[in-house]
Protein backbone atom coordinates (compact mmCIF):
# COMPACT_ATOMS: atom_id res chain seq x y z
CA UNK A 1 0.00 0.00 0.00
CA UNK A 2 1.38 3.38 -0.86
CA UNK A 3 1.70 5.79 2.01
CA UNK A 4 -0.84 8.54 2.41
CA UNK A 5 1.16 11.70 1.70
CA UNK A 6 -1.49 14.25 2.54
CA UNK A 7 -1.72 13.61 6.23
CA UNK A 8 0.47 13.09 9.24
CA UNK A 9 0.55 9.35 9.59
CA UNK A 10 0.92 7.39 12.77
CA UNK A 11 3.77 4.94 13.13
CA UNK A 12 3.00 1.81 11.15
CA UNK A 13 3.35 -0.59 14.07
CA UNK A 14 0.96 -1.13 16.94
CA UNK A 15 0.21 1.91 19.04
CA UNK A 16 -1.08 0.63 22.33
CA UNK A 17 -2.56 3.35 24.47
CA UNK A 18 -0.37 4.07 27.49
CA UNK A 19 -1.05 1.91 30.50
CA UNK A 20 -1.13 4.17 33.51
CA UNK A 21 0.34 3.24 36.84
CA UNK A 22 -1.11 -0.05 37.86
CA UNK A 23 0.26 -2.11 40.68
CA UNK A 24 3.16 -4.23 39.45
CA UNK A 25 1.42 -7.34 40.63
CA UNK A 26 -1.65 -6.73 38.49
CA UNK A 27 -2.26 -9.92 36.66
CA UNK A 28 -3.70 -9.80 33.21
CA UNK A 29 -6.49 -12.25 32.84
CA UNK A 30 -7.55 -13.55 29.53
CA UNK A 31 -11.28 -13.08 29.00
CA UNK A 32 -13.09 -16.38 28.79
CA UNK A 33 -16.29 -17.34 27.11
CA UNK A 34 -18.90 -17.70 29.81
CA UNK A 35 -21.92 -18.06 27.57
CA UNK A 36 -23.08 -21.26 25.93
CA UNK A 37 -21.77 -22.17 22.45
CA UNK A 38 -25.21 -21.42 20.98
CA UNK A 39 -25.64 -18.12 22.77
CA UNK A 40 -25.10 -14.77 21.10
CA UNK A 41 -23.65 -11.73 22.82
CA UNK A 42 -26.14 -8.99 23.63
CA UNK A 43 -26.20 -6.30 21.02
CA UNK A 44 -27.52 -2.79 20.53
CA UNK A 45 -28.97 -1.45 17.30
CA UNK A 46 -30.60 1.89 16.54
CA UNK A 47 -31.53 3.57 13.26
CA UNK A 48 -31.80 7.21 12.25
CA UNK A 49 -28.73 8.55 14.03
CA UNK A 50 -27.36 10.70 11.17
CA UNK A 51 -29.92 13.36 10.21
CA UNK A 52 -28.19 14.40 6.99
CA UNK A 53 -28.23 10.90 5.50
CA UNK A 54 -31.30 9.28 3.95
CA UNK A 55 -30.85 6.34 6.28
CA UNK A 56 -28.44 5.43 9.04
CA UNK A 57 -27.91 2.93 11.82
CA UNK A 58 -25.57 2.20 14.72
CA UNK A 59 -24.62 -1.28 15.89
CA UNK A 60 -22.75 -2.19 19.01
CA UNK A 61 -21.77 -5.30 20.91
CA UNK A 62 -20.87 -3.78 24.24
CA UNK A 63 -18.48 -5.53 26.67
CA UNK A 64 -20.50 -8.29 28.24
CA UNK A 65 -18.93 -8.34 31.68
CA UNK A 66 -17.31 -5.87 33.98
CA UNK A 67 -13.57 -5.85 33.86
CA UNK A 68 -11.99 -7.26 37.00
CA UNK A 69 -8.54 -5.71 36.86
CA UNK A 70 -7.89 -2.02 37.45
CA UNK A 71 -6.55 -1.55 33.95
CA UNK A 72 -7.80 1.27 31.82
CA UNK A 73 -7.21 -0.70 28.67
CA UNK A 74 -10.15 -2.95 27.90
CA UNK A 75 -9.25 -6.59 28.01
CA UNK A 76 -11.71 -7.67 25.37
CA UNK A 77 -12.68 -5.77 22.27
CA UNK A 78 -16.20 -4.65 21.60
CA UNK A 79 -17.74 -3.95 18.24
CA UNK A 80 -19.05 -0.51 17.23
CA UNK A 81 -20.21 0.10 13.69
CA UNK A 82 -22.11 2.97 12.07
CA UNK A 83 -23.66 2.92 8.63
CA UNK A 84 -25.08 5.70 6.48
CA UNK A 85 -27.10 5.26 3.30
CA UNK A 86 -27.25 8.04 0.71
CA UNK A 87 -29.87 7.55 -1.92
CA UNK A 88 -31.64 6.96 -4.12
CA UNK A 89 -29.73 9.80 -5.77
CA UNK A 90 -29.27 10.68 -9.44
CA UNK A 91 -26.36 9.03 -11.22
CA UNK A 92 -23.30 11.13 -12.03
CA UNK A 93 -23.38 13.01 -15.31
CA UNK A 94 -20.99 10.69 -17.13
CA UNK A 95 -22.63 7.44 -16.00
CA UNK A 96 -24.44 5.25 -18.49
CA UNK A 97 -28.18 4.58 -18.26
CA UNK A 98 -29.09 1.99 -15.66
CA UNK A 99 -32.61 0.56 -15.46
CA UNK A 100 -32.14 -0.29 -11.79
CA UNK A 101 -30.50 0.95 -8.64
CA UNK A 102 -26.70 1.01 -8.67
CA UNK A 103 -25.51 -0.06 -5.24
CA UNK A 104 -22.06 0.86 -4.01
CA UNK A 105 -20.62 -0.03 -0.63
CA UNK A 106 -17.65 1.32 1.28
CA UNK A 107 -16.33 -0.18 4.47
CA UNK A 108 -13.73 1.78 6.41
CA UNK A 109 -12.16 1.22 9.79
CA UNK A 110 -11.60 4.37 11.80
CA UNK A 111 -7.87 4.94 12.37
CA UNK A 112 -8.39 4.16 16.06
CA UNK A 113 -10.67 1.17 15.53
CA UNK A 114 -8.12 -1.52 16.28
CA UNK A 115 -4.91 -1.72 18.30
CA UNK A 116 -2.98 -1.72 15.06
CA UNK A 117 -3.61 1.75 13.77
CA UNK A 118 -5.40 1.93 10.44
CA UNK A 119 -4.63 4.31 7.61
CA UNK A 120 -7.03 6.97 6.36
CA UNK A 121 -7.39 5.38 2.94
CA UNK A 122 -9.15 2.08 2.36
CA UNK A 123 -6.76 -0.84 2.39
CA UNK A 124 -7.18 -4.20 0.68
CA UNK A 125 -8.97 -5.92 3.57
CA UNK A 126 -11.46 -3.07 3.88
CA UNK A 127 -12.19 -3.17 0.17
CA UNK A 128 -12.66 -6.90 0.51
CA UNK A 129 -15.20 -6.40 3.29
CA UNK A 130 -16.96 -3.86 1.07
CA UNK A 131 -17.22 -6.40 -1.74
CA UNK A 132 -18.63 -9.02 0.63
CA UNK A 133 -21.14 -6.52 1.98
CA UNK A 134 -22.21 -5.56 -1.52
CA UNK A 135 -23.03 -9.16 -2.45
CA UNK A 136 -24.97 -9.53 0.76
CA UNK A 137 -27.06 -6.43 0.04
CA UNK A 138 -27.45 -6.90 -3.70
CA UNK A 139 -29.59 -9.97 -3.12
CA UNK A 140 -32.00 -8.11 -0.91
CA UNK A 141 -32.56 -4.72 -2.58
CA UNK A 142 -35.31 -4.46 -5.20
CA UNK A 143 -33.34 -2.44 -7.73
CA UNK A 144 -36.02 -2.25 -10.44
CA UNK A 145 -37.99 0.24 -8.38
CA UNK A 146 -35.31 2.90 -8.64
CA UNK A 147 -34.29 3.37 -12.28
CA UNK A 148 -31.55 5.82 -13.20
CA UNK A 149 -30.39 6.17 -9.62
CA UNK A 150 -27.60 5.08 -7.35
CA UNK A 151 -27.32 4.31 -3.68
CA UNK A 152 -24.23 4.55 -1.54
CA UNK A 153 -23.80 2.50 1.63
CA UNK A 154 -20.97 3.78 3.80
CA UNK A 155 -19.96 1.71 6.81
CA UNK A 156 -17.54 3.09 9.39
CA UNK A 157 -16.16 0.68 11.95
CA UNK A 158 -15.50 2.71 15.08
CA UNK A 159 -14.23 -0.22 17.09
CA UNK A 160 -13.29 -3.47 15.45
CA UNK A 161 -12.94 -6.92 16.84
CA UNK A 162 -9.34 -7.98 17.43
CA UNK A 163 -7.92 -11.16 15.97
CA UNK A 164 -6.92 -12.39 19.40
CA UNK A 165 -6.17 -11.33 22.94
CA UNK A 166 -3.80 -8.36 22.79
CA UNK A 167 -1.82 -9.23 25.87
CA UNK A 168 -1.14 -12.77 24.81
CA UNK A 169 1.13 -13.63 21.95
CA UNK A 170 -1.93 -13.61 19.72
CA UNK A 171 -1.38 -10.09 18.51
CA UNK A 172 1.30 -10.99 16.05
CA UNK A 173 -0.53 -14.11 14.97
CA UNK A 174 -3.41 -12.35 13.31
CA UNK A 175 -5.50 -14.76 11.32
CA UNK A 176 -8.20 -12.26 10.48
CA UNK A 177 -10.85 -13.85 12.68
CA UNK A 178 -11.97 -10.45 13.93
CA UNK A 179 -12.92 -9.48 10.37
CA UNK A 180 -15.57 -12.19 10.29
CA UNK A 181 -17.41 -10.71 13.25
CA UNK A 182 -17.07 -7.24 11.73
CA UNK A 183 -18.61 -8.39 8.44
CA UNK A 184 -21.58 -9.94 10.23
CA UNK A 185 -22.11 -6.65 12.04
CA UNK A 186 -21.74 -4.68 8.79
CA UNK A 187 -24.46 -6.73 7.09
CA UNK A 188 -26.91 -6.25 9.95
CA UNK A 189 -26.28 -2.53 10.34
CA UNK A 190 -26.43 -1.89 6.58
CA UNK A 191 -29.76 -3.69 6.38
CA UNK A 192 -31.16 -1.51 9.15
CA UNK A 193 -29.90 1.64 7.43
CA UNK A 194 -31.35 0.61 4.06
CA UNK A 195 -34.78 0.06 5.59
CA UNK A 196 -34.43 3.40 7.40
CA UNK A 197 -33.77 5.07 4.05
CA UNK A 198 -37.02 3.57 2.75
CA UNK A 199 -35.37 1.55 -0.01
CA UNK A 200 -37.43 -1.44 -1.11
CA UNK A 201 -36.00 -4.76 0.09
CA UNK A 202 -37.32 -8.29 -0.29
CA UNK A 203 -36.44 -9.03 3.32
CA UNK A 204 -34.31 -7.92 6.25
CA UNK A 205 -30.84 -9.38 5.82
CA UNK A 206 -28.98 -10.20 9.00
CA UNK A 207 -25.40 -11.28 9.46
CA UNK A 208 -24.33 -14.21 11.60
CA UNK A 209 -21.00 -15.76 12.37
CA UNK A 210 -20.01 -19.15 13.77
CA UNK A 211 -16.63 -20.76 14.34
CA UNK A 212 -15.00 -24.09 15.11
CA UNK A 213 -13.09 -23.31 18.31
CA UNK A 214 -10.70 -25.48 20.23
CA UNK A 215 -11.10 -25.78 23.95
CA UNK A 216 -7.46 -25.37 24.94
CA UNK A 217 -4.02 -24.94 23.47
CA UNK A 218 -2.56 -28.17 24.76
CA UNK A 219 -5.29 -30.51 23.67
CA UNK A 220 -3.97 -32.23 20.61
CA UNK A 221 -6.45 -34.08 18.53
CA UNK A 222 -9.21 -31.99 20.06
CA UNK A 223 -12.21 -32.00 17.79
CA UNK A 224 -13.32 -28.53 18.77
CA UNK A 225 -16.78 -27.10 19.30
CA UNK A 226 -18.93 -25.10 16.94
CA UNK A 227 -19.76 -21.86 18.70
CA UNK A 228 -21.79 -18.95 17.39
CA UNK A 229 -20.64 -15.34 17.64
CA UNK A 230 -17.04 -16.07 18.67
CA UNK A 231 -15.03 -13.27 20.26
CA UNK A 232 -11.48 -14.13 19.17
CA UNK A 233 -10.00 -12.78 22.40
CA UNK A 234 -11.98 -15.31 24.40
CA UNK A 235 -10.73 -18.40 22.64
CA UNK A 236 -7.18 -19.07 23.65
CA UNK A 237 -7.24 -22.47 22.05
CA UNK A 238 -7.61 -20.68 18.78
CA UNK A 239 -10.20 -20.66 16.08
CA UNK A 240 -9.85 -23.26 13.37
CA UNK A 241 -12.51 -22.14 10.97
CA UNK A 242 -15.18 -19.49 10.84
CA UNK A 243 -18.13 -18.74 8.62
CA UNK A 244 -20.18 -15.59 8.03
CA UNK A 245 -23.55 -15.62 6.33
CA UNK A 246 -25.98 -12.94 5.23
CA UNK A 247 -29.32 -14.60 5.81
CA UNK A 248 -32.90 -13.77 4.82
CA UNK A 249 -35.00 -15.46 7.43
CA UNK A 250 -38.47 -15.19 5.99
CA UNK A 251 -37.29 -16.53 2.62
CA UNK A 252 -34.75 -18.96 4.10
CA UNK A 253 -32.11 -17.74 1.68
CA UNK A 254 -28.43 -16.97 2.06
CA UNK A 255 -27.20 -13.98 0.04
CA UNK A 256 -23.61 -14.03 1.20
CA UNK A 257 -21.32 -16.66 2.67
CA UNK A 258 -17.66 -16.41 3.62
CA UNK A 259 -15.86 -19.37 5.13
CA UNK A 260 -12.30 -19.25 6.29
CA UNK A 261 -9.96 -21.83 7.78
CA UNK A 262 -10.24 -25.60 7.72
CA UNK A 263 -13.62 -26.76 8.91
CA UNK A 264 -13.09 -30.31 7.68
CA UNK A 265 -16.17 -32.43 8.12
CA UNK A 266 -17.97 -29.71 10.01
CA UNK A 267 -18.40 -27.26 7.16
CA UNK A 268 -22.12 -27.90 6.90
CA UNK A 269 -22.67 -27.69 10.63
CA UNK A 270 -20.69 -24.47 10.67
CA UNK A 271 -22.99 -22.91 8.06
CA UNK A 272 -26.06 -24.06 9.96
CA UNK A 273 -24.78 -22.48 13.15
CA UNK A 274 -23.93 -19.24 11.34
CA UNK A 275 -27.50 -19.16 10.01
CA UNK A 276 -28.72 -19.71 13.55
CA UNK A 277 -26.65 -16.74 14.71
CA UNK A 278 -28.12 -14.65 11.90
CA UNK A 279 -31.68 -15.53 12.96
CA UNK A 280 -30.86 -14.44 16.50
CA UNK A 281 -29.54 -11.11 15.20
CA UNK A 282 -32.63 -10.65 13.09
CA UNK A 283 -34.82 -10.52 16.18
CA UNK A 284 -32.92 -7.42 17.31
CA UNK A 285 -32.90 -5.97 13.79
CA UNK A 286 -36.67 -6.34 13.37
CA UNK A 287 -37.29 -4.78 16.76
CA UNK A 288 -35.00 -1.82 16.02
CA UNK A 289 -36.61 -1.17 12.64
CA UNK A 290 -40.10 -1.37 14.08
CA UNK A 291 -39.20 1.01 16.88
CA UNK A 292 -37.81 3.50 14.36
CA UNK A 293 -40.99 3.39 12.26
CA UNK A 294 -43.14 3.98 15.34
CA UNK A 295 -41.01 6.96 16.33
CA UNK A 296 -41.20 8.44 12.83
CA UNK A 297 -44.98 8.02 12.72
CA UNK A 298 -45.36 9.74 16.06
CA UNK A 299 -43.28 12.64 14.79
CA UNK A 300 -45.34 12.92 11.60
CA UNK A 301 -48.57 12.88 13.61
CA UNK A 302 -47.22 15.60 15.88
CA UNK A 303 -46.30 17.74 12.87
CA UNK A 304 -49.74 17.24 11.33
CA UNK A 305 -51.44 18.44 14.50
CA UNK A 306 -49.21 21.51 14.61
CA UNK A 307 -49.83 22.28 10.94
CA UNK A 308 -53.59 21.94 11.38
CA UNK A 309 -53.64 24.44 14.24
CA UNK A 310 -51.65 26.94 12.16
CA UNK A 311 -54.02 26.58 9.24
CA UNK A 312 -57.09 27.16 11.37
CA UNK A 313 -55.72 30.49 12.55
CA UNK A 314 -55.03 31.70 9.05
CA UNK A 315 -58.41 30.93 7.62
CA UNK A 316 -59.29 29.50 4.28
CA UNK A 317 -57.53 30.97 1.26
CA UNK A 318 -59.76 32.14 -1.56
CA UNK A 319 -59.51 31.25 -5.20
CA UNK A 320 -58.00 34.04 -7.28
CA UNK A 321 -59.48 35.00 -10.62
CA UNK A 322 -56.91 36.13 -13.11
CA UNK A 323 -57.37 38.07 -16.32
CA UNK A 324 -55.35 38.28 -19.46
Amino acid sequence: MQADRRRLNAPPGGTAPPVFATAPKTKLQRPTRTREPDQHRKLFLRTGIVPSASGSAYYEIPPQQQQQTGLLVPQSSSLKITCTVHGPRPLPRNAAFSPNLLLSTHVKFAPFATRNRRGYVQNASERDLGAHLETALRGVVIGERFPKSGCEVVVTVLEGEEDGWWAGNAEGRGGGWGMMGVLAGCITVASAALVDAGIDCVDLVSGGVAAVVQAGTDQRGDDGVVAIDPAPSEHDGGIRAACVVGYLQSRDEVTEMWMKGDAGMRAEQLIDEAVKAASLTRAVLAEAVKEAVEMKLEKVEGNAVAAASVKEGKGKSKDVVMTG
Binding site: C201, D203, L204, S250
Partner: peptide
Protein backbone atom coordinates in the same frame (compact mmCIF):
# COMPACT_ATOMS: atom_id res chain seq x y z
CA UNK B 1 -49.38 5.22 18.63
CA UNK B 2 -52.48 4.42 16.65
CA UNK B 3 -53.62 0.88 16.19
CA UNK B 4 -52.42 0.49 12.59
CA UNK B 5 -50.18 -2.51 12.20
CA UNK B 6 -46.61 -1.92 11.08
CA UNK B 7 -45.18 -4.16 8.39
CA UNK B 8 -41.48 -4.97 8.03
CA UNK B 9 -39.67 -6.00 4.85
CA UNK B 10 -40.04 -9.71 4.26
CA UNK B 11 -43.23 -9.98 6.28
CA UNK B 12 -45.85 -12.18 4.66
CA UNK B 13 -49.10 -10.34 3.98
Amino acid sequence: MSSTSIALPGQSL
